[in-house]
Design a protein around this nucleic acid. Structure first.
Length: 600
RNA sequence: GUCCCCGUAGCUUAAUGGAUAAAGUAGAGCUCUUCUAAGGCUUUGAUGCAGGUUCGAUUCCUGCCGGGGACACCA
């Protein structure tokens, strides 16, 4: 266990014991928190104000009594306990504690910050399930970044995490895409819009390469054209609906066309996701399990959990969950989204024996998710408390009058992930050339890509996932100030010092000295493991990002005041701090999915 | 109509019910012969409105205003 967790636990236990043994308070909740200001100690608790009434003491007196008790216990790393009106108990830690923290960081390196609070738990996190009919935009980006960082954060808390996604690869949307391709990507307009003809003459249709566009853009074009035809032309609508029917009847030609257009979609998506360093342990394909859902609905009917309406549709009553009832099967007996989702939840539970199932999905699915969870509980597939919808706010654009505005494909205001990365990358390149007097280094492209991704990922992950984000490409992706670049720059600065060191880093400090100018920085380093726990509690990694900004700011302030490589006897100690900062930044960034660089 | 989410400096964002509401950016002013100035330092500036619970509310509850979203056989 890391030093801070050990200390916090010790104090919390001692306090809780005191409250229960002296005042008979049953399992009191004691939480030691970071003080708002170091004047108020290194950590503090407001527990006496919480339990003053129950203990029949004034908050201040109770705080005094607790403090006396804790002083009597002679806790290892507590230097001083202070009681402040109206009843705060502030704890000041010894220097030897912070020395221990630094040693711990150097020893653990890439593991510093991890804990085992979720040990023996298996989590499944579904995120970034893209519909393979359009190029991915900022909404998908946020989904991916939130999802991936959540996966890493949970495993830092000791859980075994399975990261998964589902490809909704069948149905009317894909059929529209097929039509769009068949009718609009012909090299010659005389070529018939016929599936069988396409199968034997695929060369008469364009490939993305021949059109000189990326496959996901190609797919988007096909889909939009297909959808537009579908809406305006009844004949097309009939053909598209017939694609779905024939596909379900395993028509060989239709399946070939289906798999052909999907291959373009996947190629495009995977290229973008590779850029983001996305990873899934398992990808589910809707076409493989969509039929299974009906069985569960039939089972529920048989058991009398669901009811069949007069027209044949199946309904479930969710009034005990206090949410609107929902239809599980259409009157014609065909399945709905939720029908297949039931099957998928069951599959996941069965295959992974997961304790917790999490869905990182947009807020508009909120009700649908709650309904799905409730139905799964009704069917005894799992308990509703084991399911969690991790929602996230919209990523929108700035309106003309400064307001929030959703992206709209109709208005052509959708910002694609790749386009965004490219824009930021160019911005960074320009900054580089002006910084280096117009000279370009060889690996400038690779470095700009890394920095652009750092800037974008950080800017999205630094705010609470539930907050709507307004996106202004000019302003939102900062390369100065509270940004990913700032954090990377700080890391590079620390590494640069370490590269220039002559002395070896040895035992840092005897623990007898008082902390000097480095106090704020060293104290911050100690909190990192607590931040990982806070992130778990809120299921949001923005705490990590916010912490990194604070840490970097403290390091840079210290850097401005003190010279590390000054040849003094404290040099080794200062190098230890510098190295610890580097390790902590790197670890924090790795949770956010941001790669560090050695030079900028 | 019902339900859900959101509302904090000009702008983009922080703050398990706690102490003086914290940063960045934009504006004003310093700061590179010193380990990377994409940095540091100083300064101006905010909790939508009205109640309630509480020793204490940006946070919880009620109502209102404003923005977004969802509401049975679409995906």
């Amino acid at each position: 266990m890391n030093p801070i967790a050990e200390l916090v636990l010790e104090v919390e236990h001692a306090t809780a014991d005191f409250l229960s043994s002296h005042y008979g308070i049953k399992s009191p909740e004691v939480s030691l928190e970071r003080s708002d200001n170091f004047i108020h100690g290194d950590m503090s608790t407001s527990v006496s104000m919480k339990y003053a009434k129950e203990a029949e003491e004034s908050p201040y007196n109770l705080a005094q009594l607790i403090a006396n008790h804790l002083n009597f216990q002679q806790l290892t790393h507590i230097k001083k306990i202070e009681v402040i009106e109206p009843g705060f108990i502030n704890f000041f830690f010894t220097t030897s504690f912070f020395v221990k923290v630094l040693e711990n960081i150097i020893n653990l390196e890439a593991d510093y910050g991890k804990n085992i609070s979720l040990m023996n738990q298996k989590w499944i996190v579904e995120h970034t399930s893209p519909n393979p009919n359009k190029a991915m935009h900022l909404g998908h980006l946020r989904n991916n970044l939130v999802g991936m960082s959540l996966v890493r954060m949970l495993s830092w808390n000791g859980a075994v995490v399975v990261s998964d996604a589902v490809y909704n690869d069948r149905g009317i949307a894909i059929a529209k895409l097929m039509w769009g391709f068949l009718s609009h990507m012909k090299k010659n307009s005389d070529t018939p819009n016929d599936v069988a003809y396409w199968v034997s003459n695929p060369d008469k249709w364009y490939t993305p390469k021949e059109k000189n566009i990326l496959p996901d853009i190609f797919v988007t074009q096909c889909y939009l054209l297909g959808e537009s035809d579908f809406k305006s032309d009844e004949n097309v609508e009939a053909i598209v609906r017939n694609f779905v029917v024939q596909w379900e009847n395993n028509n060989k030609d239709v399946w070939e066309l289906w798999s052909h257009v999907l291959s373009y979609a996947y190629e495009g998506m995977e290229r973008t996701l590779l850029r983001l360093d996305n990873h899934w342990d398992k990808i589910w394909h809707e076409h493989e399990h969509y039929k299974e859902g009906k069985k569960y609905v039939q089972e529920g009917l048989k058991k009398g959990i669901f009811t069949k309406l007069e027209d044949g549709a199946v309904l479930t009553n969710l009034s005990i969950y206090d949410i609107p009832d929902t239809i599980l099967l259409k009157k014609d007996g065909t399945s709905l989204y939720i029908t297949q989702d039931i099957a998928l939840v069951a599959l996941k539970k069965k295959r992974y024996k997961a304790d917790k199932l999490v869905w990182v999905i947009g807020p508009e699915q909120s009700l649908a998710m709650r309904q799905l969870f409730a139905v799964c509980e009704q069917l005894k597939i799992g308990k509703i408390d084991d399911f969690d919808h991790v929602s996230y706010g919209y990523v929108g654009l700035k309106d003309d009058d400064g307001g929030f505005k959703k992206m709209s494909s109709r208005e052509g205001t959708v910002v694609l992930i790749d386009d965004l990365i490219n824009v930021v990358k160019e911005k960074i390149k320009i900054k580089f050339t002006s910084k280096n007097n117009g000279e370009l280094t060889e690996d400038i492209d690779e470095l700009s890509e890394k920095l652009a991704l750092a800037a974008i990922k950080f800017s999205i992950l630094k705010s609470d996932r539930k907050q709507d984000l307004v996106f202004d490409t000019e302003q939102s992706i900062e390369t100065t100030g509270d940004s990913g670049i700032y954090v990377l720059y700080t890391y590079v600065r620390a590494q640069s010092i370490l590269r220039k060191k002559i002395k070896q880093i040895n035992s840092p400090l005897d623990g007898q000295h008082e902390l000097g100018l480095e106090a704020d920085l060293v104290k911050l380093l100690a909190y990192f493991p607590e931040v990982i726990k806070t992130a778990k509690k809120d299921m949001s990694t923005h705490h990590v990002a916010q912490y990194l900004l604070e840490l970097c700011s403290a390091f840079n302030a210290w850097y401005g005041k003190e010279i590390v490589l000054d040849g003094s006897e404290k040099e080794s100690y200062k190098l230890t701090i510098t190295e610890s900062v580097g390790i902590t930044i790197k670890n924090g960034l790795s949770i956010l999915g941001i790669e560090t660089v050695e030079k900028i």
